[in-house]
């Protein structure tokens, strides 16, 4: 019996002794956004897998840090590591994300990471 061949180890070979996401360092095009920028999360269609939470889609957030370069999970889950891009840590106001979040706690926030192709300038 024969099984299809595929390279189960290419990620291991790339990342061993270096780490992931460190192994993608330097592969992304120049970052389009900087710390302090206000951005909106695009509600892009995703096939079967995404790590961009539903609750962030359409919301506006502020970039707090450029965290690392990596292929987006939406590609990597299909073993496609060609499109390395910058990942950003973003801070969202709770009131922006949820209806009726109490005014008394207007300062409460969520921080989470989103890859660049989901972001558009506000």
């Amino acid at each position: 019996m024969s099984k299809p061949h595929y390279d189960r180890e290419h990620h291991v070979k790339k990342a061993t002794g270096i780490g992931d996401p460190q192994c993608f360092k330097g592969e992304a095009p120049a970052a389009r956004f900087k710390v302090g920028d206000k951005v909106r999360i695009k509600d892009l269609p995703d096939l079967f897998y995404t790590r961009t939470q539903g609750y962030t889609r359409g919301a506006e957030g502020t970039i707090s840090r450029l965290v690392y370069e990596s292929p987006p999970a939406e590609d990597e889950s299909w073993d496609n590591t060609e499109n390395v891009e910058w990942f950003y840590s973003l801070v969202f106001d709770m009131q922006e994300l949820w209806p009726n979040y109490p005014e008394a706690y207007a300062g409460d926030t969520v921080e989470t990471e989103i890859p660049e192709h989901y972001l558009e300038a506000v």
Binding site: R51, Y68, S70, A73, F87, S89, W98, Y105, D108, V110
Partner: peptide, 30 residues
């Protein structure tokens, strides 16, 4: 991520109004 103050209170942690809560959602590689 939706009702952080309520959930923290269930853990016995009640924070005053002047302390802001930041929920960190570990969704990617960090």
């Amino acid at each position: 991520v939706r009702w952080p103050r309520q959930v923290l209170a269930e853990f016995g942690l009640q924070l005053p109004e002047d302390v802001e809560i930041r929920v960190v959602d570990s969704n990617q590689k960090s």
